[in-house]
Amino acid sequence: MLEEQTLTSYAPAMRYTNGQLESQFKTILENKQLVNFVESISQMVIILNKHRQVVYANNSYKDFCKQLNHDPLIGKRPGETFNCANAFNSLTGCGTTDACKSCGAVNAILESQKGKRSTKECQILTIHNDALDLEVTANPLDLDGEKLTIFSVNDISADKRRKSLERVFIHDLLNSAGAISGLSSILKEIDDPEQLKDIAQTIEDASQNLIEEIQAQRELSAAERGELQLQLREVSSNTLLTDLQKTYAKHELNNGKPIQLSMDSTECTLTTDLVLVRRILGNMIKNAIEMNVPHDTITLCCKENENSIELSVHNNSVVPNKVKDQLFKRFFSTKGQGRGLGTYSMKLLGEKYLNGKVGFTSCEESGTTFYIQLPK
């Protein structure tokens, strides 16, 4: 048996050896009634030992993980079978990092090890920037004196996406359409040419925001299906940042928060998909606009490094520690249920499609900077 590792930040890190795992696997195979029961269930099901390691997986689970036999799964923990990014951020693996403290999967397993059934939701961002939304149930099982857990999984990603479309996207569209309708109804009652011009400009801006929302949702859906086609072109960093500065200075979300270009910003040319880069930086700027920080200023910057070009958005807010590890998960948000697509789409579009690196730094002394590093 491997020794307990002291580096764990949450659940125990101890694991059984290969020999012990093989013995447990054989014990389960000998229990025909248990195997037949697990295989008769349409849900994904695995059996875990007391160290949260897989000792048996039914065919539904193996199909979902794209494994043809047991060998690649035996000994792994649930997050490792799903390629959870957090599971590979530590030598001690799934369930042992700070980020794991808010994971529904490990918490359900830990509760089941205390003798009670537990059902929770689990959000996973994989090492390939795919998002999984799962409902997991952990049931305690005593087999020949061995404390095991029957761990079943429902993929609820499609349901989450549907609810997101209803709650977020359609809600935002109705707000924008309502604003346009309200302003349009006022036009026929106004005779002052200057006032008419101002309202017409406001309607044009609101219409553009409406189009942006529709395009953003379409891009995100295509990206998640793996169908997004890149349109590469040469882009001037200074032109890009200046355009974003003008756009979001008058955005409907912005109530007068200043947006400026950094004095240290470098002018350079990069070859990329302009629409996607604008979408990523636009989401970073929107996040900064929505932060409630007195006398805040948003600063846009470009820095050229040896192998990459970094575009960033800075403001004076601070991201709480409990939020940092969750920030790029789909539907995770500090703004309420059903939000959280902005930061998730940054990671998906920036890393999976533009081959860059998306991240952030945040502390009391220097505030928060979101960035995307793109290869030259």
Rank of each mutant, 00 (worst) to 15 (best):
I203V: 13
K197H: 10
L232R: 12
L220S: 11
I214D: 01
Q201H: 08
L196A: 00
A177I: 07
T202D: 13
N175W: 08
R162E: 15
R233T: 12
Q231L: 11
T202K: 09
D159A: 12
S181Q: 05
F169G: 00
K163L: 07
A222V: 08
R162N: 11
R225H: 10
Q217Y: 04
D192K: 01
A179G: 09
R162G: 11
D191T: 10
L210D: 01
D172H: 07
L183Y: 13
A177M: 00
I199T: 09
E204D: 14
E213I: 09
K197T: 10
I199Y: 05
L230D: 00
E194S: 07
Q231S: 07
R162Q: 07
L230Y: 00
E219I: 11
S181Y: 06
K163N: 15
I203W: 00
S176N: 10
S181L: 05
G226V: 00
L173T: 01
P193A: 00
D192G: 03
L230C: 05
K160P: 01
L173D: 01
D192M: 10
P193T: 02
R233E: 04
A177P: 00
A177V: 12
R233Q: 09
T202C: 09
D192F: 07
E189L: 00
D172R: 03
L183M: 05
D192I: 13
K163M: 14
S221L: 08
D192T: 05
G182F: 01
L165E: 02
L174V: 12
S184R: 01
S176I: 03
E194R: 07
L165Y: 12
K188E: 01
Q217H: 15
L230Q: 00
F169W: 04
L187H: 02
E166W: 11
T202L: 12
V168Y: 09
I180P: 07
V168T: 13
K160D: 06
H171Q: 14
A216T: 06
S176H: 02
K160F: 07
E166F: 04
E213Y: 07
A206H: 11
A223H: 02
K197S: 14
S221K: 11
Q217N: 13
A177H: 04
D205P: 06
A223E: 01
L228W: 04
E227A: 08
Q208Y: 12
L196M: 05
E224L: 04
R162H: 13
E227K: 04
A179M: 14
D192E: 15
D172N: 06
E166T: 04
R225N: 10
I214G: 05
L196Y: 04
Q195A: 12
I180F: 00
G182A: 02
Q208D: 11
I180M: 13
S184F: 15
I211P: 04
L174W: 07
A206Y: 12
K188I: 02
Q215R: 08
L196C: 05
L230R: 02
E166Y: 14
A222D: 09
L174F: 14
